[in-house]
Simulated scan of single mutants.
Amino acid sequence: MKMKSLALACSLVLFASASSFSQTQDSQWRKLDPENTVLMTLPQGKVVIELAPQFAPNHVKQFKTLVKKGFYDGEKFYRVIDGFVAQGGPEDASEKDKSVAPLKIEGDFAVDNKWSFTLVQNNDLFAPQTGFKDGFALGYSPKEQKAWLLHCPGVIAMARENEPDTATSHFYIPNGQAPRYLDRIMTVFGRVVYGMNHVQSITRTSVIEGATEVDKKDYTPMVKVQLMTDVPVAQRLNLEVKNTEHPTYAEKLAERKQRDHTFFYKKPPQVLDICQTPVGVRIAQ
């Protein structure tokens, strides 16, 4: 492998082992696993969600079980706030809502000294380090040896009550600024990889003071929510995402920090906000 310098390799990519490193060189793109991909159909179009069982296994398992039952079909986004989140699920305190068992929070997870990720930034405002693992933005504390998924726009997380272990089926998607103050106290279990423009157009239910309330009949429904494996092959959206473990991805991050384009006649600080560092997506050929 050719790298610009040994320093770049050491500072931007932490490698678990020589064997895992060699595996990352196979491709700069990876295909989504249809077993862990969800197709959400909204009135305005299709949204594809990649689930993260490697980081939040119990939440993903419960979400997939509910999806396969058609639990979310016809349910609405009932709490939609500009610059914050779009939250949906069954009506609070309904029999349907009560039928789902609460989950133990999976706000962060322990890692060992062999764990690796692609570093983006040291001394982030909310975490000692930020980076990517399997395309997901995460925070990492070397001191604690713990990592956690971040509340970047487009992630999907479970809503809960005040107590930490009370999440059931209601979920939310940040649709504006990154509410990073929710990191580690909520469970992020996936992310939107396609159709974020449709998420952004979900009807706002929160209005400014003095405005007419939005009628519940105008709330945006989830027409259908399916595992991609349950979608007829001809109707599937087969996507690939950038492989954030590939060595060229670390090189791209380093170049992005430099801001060498002539447009930047005044250089900004060499800082990367991980939530403004999107992971590329393309339709598989």
Rank of each mutant, 00 (worst) to 15 (best):
L6I: 14
L6S: 13
C10M: 14
F15N: 09
F15K: 11
A16V: 08
S20R: 12
F21Q: 09
Q23V: 06
T24R: 04
Q28H: 14
Q28F: 15
P34M: 11
T37I: 07
T37G: 04
T37A: 06
L39K: 09
T41G: 05
E50P: 04
L51G: 00
L51S: 00
L51P: 01
F55P: 03
H59I: 10
H59A: 09
T65Y: 11
V67D: 05
V67W: 10
K68I: 08
K69R: 14
K69W: 11
G70V: 11
E75W: 15
K76G: 07
F77Y: 10
Y78L: 14
Y78C: 12
V80W: 06
D82V: 14
V85P: 03
G88V: 13
P90Q: 05
K96L: 04
V100Y: 03
P102A: 02
G107S: 11
G107F: 14
F109T: 02
N113S: 12
W115A: 00
S116A: 13
L119K: 07
L119N: 01
V120D: 02
Q121S: 07
N123D: 12
D124W: 12
L125F: 13
Q129P: 04
G131E: 11
F132L: 09
F132I: 06
D134A: 08
G135E: 00
L138T: 04
G139W: 04
K143T: 15
E144M: 10
L150W: 05
C152K: 06
G154I: 01
A157L: 10
P164Y: 04
A167C: 03
A167S: 08
S169N: 05
S169T: 04
I173S: 01
P174K: 00
G176E: 08
A178L: 07
R180T: 01
L182E: 05
D183A: 00
D183Y: 00
T187M: 10
V188D: 01
V188F: 01
V192R: 03
H198C: 05
H198F: 10
H198N: 11
H198Y: 12
S201A: 11
S201R: 12
I202V: 07
E209Y: 14
G210Y: 05
G210H: 06
T212A: 14
T212W: 14
V214G: 03
D215N: 10
M222P: 06
V225T: 13
D230V: 07
A234Y: 08
R236N: 01
N238P: 02
E240V: 03
V241I: 15
K242T: 15
K242P: 11
T244S: 07
T244D: 09
P247K: 09
T248K: 12
L253R: 03
E255F: 14
E255D: 13
R256W: 12
Q258D: 12
R259K: 11
D260L: 15
H261N: 13
L272D: 01
I274V: 05
C275D: 00
Q276V: 03
T277L: 12
R282S: 08
I283V: 12
Q285E: 15
